[in-house]
Design a protein around this nucleic acid. Sequence first.
DNA 1: TACTTATGTCTTGTCAATGGACAAAAGTCC
DNA 2: GGACTTTTGTCCATTGACAAGACATAAGTA
Lengths: 382, 382
Amino acid sequence: MATPTSAGELLQLVRTGQATTRKALRTRSGLSRSTLTARLEQLQAAGLLAEGDQEDSTGGRPARQLRFDDQHAVVLAASIDTMHAEAALTDLSGRRLARRGGALRVADGPEPVLARIAEWFEAMLAEVGRPVCGVGVSVPGPVEPGRARVTQPPIMPGWDGYPIDGYLGARFGAPVLVDNDANLMALGEHRARYPDSAALVVVKVSTGIGAGLVIGGEVYRGVDGGAGDIGHIRLPGHPEARCLCGSVGCLAAVASGGALAARLTELGLPTTSGSGVRERIVAGEPAAVRLAESAGRQVGEVLATLVCVVNPGVLVIAGDLAEPHFVAGVREVLYRRALPRATQSLRVEIGGRGLALGGAVAMVVEAVFAPAEVDRRLAARA
Amino acid sequence: MATPTSAGELLQLVRTGQATTRKALRTRSGLSRSTLTARLEQLQAAGLLAEGDQEDSTGGRPARQLRFDDQHAVVLAASIDTMHAEAALTDLSGRRLARRGGALRVADGPEPVLARIAEWFEAMLAEVGRPVCGVGVSVPGPVEPGRARVTQPPIMPGWDGYPIDGYLGARFGAPVLVDNDANLMALGEHRARYPDSAALVVVKVSTGIGAGLVIGGEVYRGVDGGAGDIGHIRLPGHPEARCLCGSVGCLAAVASGGALAARLTELGLPTTSGSGVRERIVAGEPAAVRLAESAGRQVGEVLATLVCVVNPGVLVIAGDLAEPHFVAGVREVLYRRALPRATQSLRVEIGGRGLALGGAVAMVVEAVFAPAEVDRRLAARA
DNA sequence: TACTTATGTCTTGTCAATGGACAAAAGTCC
DNA sequence: GGACTTTTGTCCATTGACAAGACATAAGTA
């Protein structure tokens, strides 16, 4: 946005907090007062913009703040994981107004899972009301770029090509956007905590392993939507590790939460899932801690290459295994294997929980309130 | 460019061959005939646009082609390699009108090297004449993003922070742009052969190893300009391989042309450089062939991760070792280690020679004829 | 109370671009 | 050769968006 001029672009500036007063908008846009007033009136009439508090005076009349009216519609977001799902109803700033969640097996196929999620959505809507402006869904598998469906997922039997947008769109009468969980975690982390980072990578290590990249502020997907899919890189020297994807020796088969659970079970410590592994590590179980550090080192080997190739400013470790022991293993190998230039200004951080939900909301809000889209809707109103 | 309207944007469409007749420009831009005519007149008056041949008739008067006037100025481009440099004088379409080249040790420092290159440039200008619109330089080391100087190069003693643009700009009175050789090879390959690829990676394997990424049509540099710097990732299990960068076990110390030359010398086959290694491989020397395949496999291990992370459409192997034996090694490991989804639509190709020069020309032409820049110059004329 | 700053609302003028109307150029088709 | 098509150029009135300025008002500080 060299010089933002359209109503949609102005709204974007307010929404992202880049300019919150009329004064700031004028200097930022170079528009004349008359034009700016007309634009803002349009936005207020459409219910997109509201007036806020006054700023502190700088000697004269204080500027009145403008804020994006984040209450005039809500977003439905769902995050589907292997054995569990979560749903939230948020306002347009991402604040959660209601949430639901529970055990839900993705392996049961799309219709039972989506039906349950739709129930949650409807219950939350009954609580809160207000019109829905969009639905965002995070899924633990590869998504065809630009389309709301999964393609050839290794762990989502029955979902291949299923029209998720058709199902939910018909029920909620709003656009439905779907993306991979790692991508949405990266988007969520970028928007929530590192909005200025030019390149950010989130690595999710739970039952599987996957990475999401945000480059130049947008999710980077690669030519086939496969970017960041590091979980099924085959490591040398692990011919015994069978992977859910049908292959052998995948990183996910060696160092994921699922793999560690199997290993712990072999050692006489029955564990079924990534979150179970996490509990054992947090409890200080020596075998679990040892395995976590070792898995961190193995993931670190792959991340060393990733960091040299992508040279991101932030590397976030998220998922069940995102805890200090695992991350220590990652850091150890990363700083040993990667170039100083790639690591000197790199921040390695532990991600929050519920990131994918936040990313799904951001995906929806940014699609629905993209400047071009807002301008189109304003034009249609008139 | 949603709807291109400015003169610069129209020129861009013509220059890149997206629209070559007035008719096509009208449908593409939505401008009225009067406006379009005015714009094109401006461009013709500035000498940027020329009329070309007629197209075949479709029943009535045939359309007259428009072409970018690629003869009204020239580009000076130089590609500096470890032991050798090349220079070319090209027209604005990249056609080479003159060239020079020869042995030139980058280790001698910036002034002797740049003085020699400037001599070549001046000799070529004396031959061809015409005004210079820009100078592009490819260097075998990291370049600070957006600035025409090298930072902390492992193999360019004396060049750290040297103002290359100052030296050459003063002599040729034109903007000077500098970038890393791998980046420019990627740009050159993209523009010359794969202009539609959304993500392309070039891996240069000569005396050193480096990769350049073109994502969304632009060189991707990462946050510190270090993206693609895979040559100094440390491989496990090579404590004996000392690298020029001062570290130990780097990929470049194990599998580069320089490393293979040293290995061949140990085996009683004296070889000094990457090009020497290439000669021995091409000559069919069994030890050289074996080493090339093995080095290809080692580079392939890193590239498997790269391909899974970036998911490019094209992977080009370039440099001295870009020949069938080495590439066979790369392919073997790549298809074994990387995900099918990342490799199924991936093309692995051998790059041409002189790619960096082409990339340097493209970098200059695109900077000088960027729409905004063209509009600025047209405004200044009036 | 005087001054400062932010904001709203007119009017007027400027400029770019559209949209016809008209005309000419350069082919094809019969 | 003559009728028809298609591309292109040119002129001009109209439109519409915006800037710029004048004036008014609101809401604070010194």
